[in-house]
């Protein structure tokens, strides 16, 4: 398993290089003037532009630019924003908040999504099944930002159960409502996936064997059918992590959370190219690492997977 992990990490290197290159190219090489709006309403003075072009290596060819950027990146240097703060310090400050938010969201997603899926599968065609199918379909159809506004309006403002926006400390209590919003889409998918898998596994031969051993229905379902149905769900949660990160941008914007998403949102609005690249790079790295982690976890819960 250790060997496998190392090999997977090595395999990740070209993907990381390719991905960061694409990100870099998208930001700096696309047509358009990176200095528009940097100096108020007037065009920037030539001296400023020259200084900035030198600082961001914009006069080199793209591969050279990228090479320099990557070299800095390897040394943990994510560069500086136009405003002069290091990108890394901005990320480091925002990261814990997003981490907490994502963690709560994943817990919600797992606990509620899986329970709902099990409930639906065990009542196939019944009231709960239809209720869960319809409600998850609705959740899937409504974009996260609309759900965010609805939740903010209903639970934050009208009913006032939760604070409508999150303060600078981002306490767990403040984060619950945004985490629900962030989790909603994935939760719906997890519920549907779990329902489908479990319904199928309930008809599997080994479940029939478990029943024929004289186990209670509870044990047959809980220990034999559910456990096997969780395997694809775990994979899904990993693959879906990217969507969760994307959703975090929207959710943090709506609830005024000062996390990675909020930072990205702000950097886009102020056209802070270096910060945008830095943040997206970090998010992509996190995404890739989470997927690696899920693959390894996958092997731990499914003994049929062998790491050769």
């Amino acid at each position: 398993m250790g060997r496998y992990t190392i090999r997977r990490l090595l395999q990740m290197i070209p993907v990381v290089i390719g991905t960061t290159f694409i990100i870099y190219a998208m930001v700096w090489a696309l047509p358009g003037d990176p200095f528009v709006g940097k100096c108020g309403d007037r065009p920037c003075p030539a001296s400023y532009i020259a200084e900035m072009r030198a600082k961001f290596n914009l006069d080199d060819s793209l591969p050279v630019q990228y090479g320099k950027y990557l070299w800095n990146l390897l040394q943990g240097n994510f560069g500086e924003s136009f405003s002069g703060r290091t990108v890394w310090s901005e990320i480091a400050q925002a990261f814990p908040v997003t981490f907490r938010l994502a963690l709560i969201a994943i817990i919600i997603e797992i606990v509620i999504g899986i329970s709902a899926g099990v409930l639906a599968a065990l009542n196939r065609g019944g009231f709960w099944d239809n209720l869960i199918l319809v409600s998850t379909l609705i959740v899937i159809s409504i974009p996260v930002f609309v759900i965010g506004f609805l939740a903010q309006f209903t639970f934050g403002i009208k009913l006032a159960w939760f604070p409508p926006t999150v303060g600078p400390n981002a306490t767990i209590y403040e984060l619950i409502l945004p985490a629900f919003v962030l989790a909603s889409l994935s939760l719906a998918y997890v519920a549907r996936l779990m329902r489908g898998n479990l319904a199928e596994n309930l008809r599997a031969d080994y479940v029939r064997t478990a029943t024929s051993k004289g186990l209670s229905r509870r044990r047959v379902i809980g220990r034999h059918a559910v456990r096997n149905s969780l395997i694809p769900v775990v994979t899904f949660i990993g693959a879906d992590f990217g969507a969760l990160l994307g959703g975090a941008i929207v959710t943090e914007g709506i609830f005024n959370i000062r996390g990675i998403g909020g930072l990205l949102y702000l950097s886009i609005r102020t056209r802070e190219g270096a910060t945008v690249v830095g943040v997206v790079t970090v998010l992509v790295l996190v995404f890739l690492l989470v997927n690696l982690l899920v693959d390894i976890l996958y092997g731990a819960i499914d003994p049929r997977i062998r790491y050769e």
Binding site: S212, N228, D302
Partner: peptide
């Protein structure tokens, strides 16, 4: 007690 035909699918893989 019962024994099934296809032991691969009749035993729980995990």
């Amino acid at each position: 007690a019962m024994i099934f035909q296809d032991s691969l699918s009749a035993l729980n893989p995990v």
